[in-house]
Amino acid sequence: MTTAEAPAASAVLEQISATIQDAVAETDAPITLDAALGADLGIDSMSVVEILVQIEKRFGFQLADAEVTGITTVRDILDAVLRRQ
């Protein structure tokens, strides 16, 4: 990631974190870039999809099926969004 992209990325990350927090209010674990959605944040597979659908709506794009199955960390979601920007 270049320095020029960093502010945009941090704004995106903020929105992703907010989306995750909305979906799983009960999570106590910090939502860090490398937090695993399942193992660290305790998010089950259907909640992951619910989060990804919210991300799609928020940023106005559709994830490919391979992305939906491949995303395991917060960073994976961030990368998927940044690829579209």
Partner: peptide, 8 residues
């Protein structure tokens, strides 16, 4: 079952 894709 690939749960994520089925759900979606």
């Amino acid at each position: 079952m690939e749960g994520r894709l089925v759900f979606r």
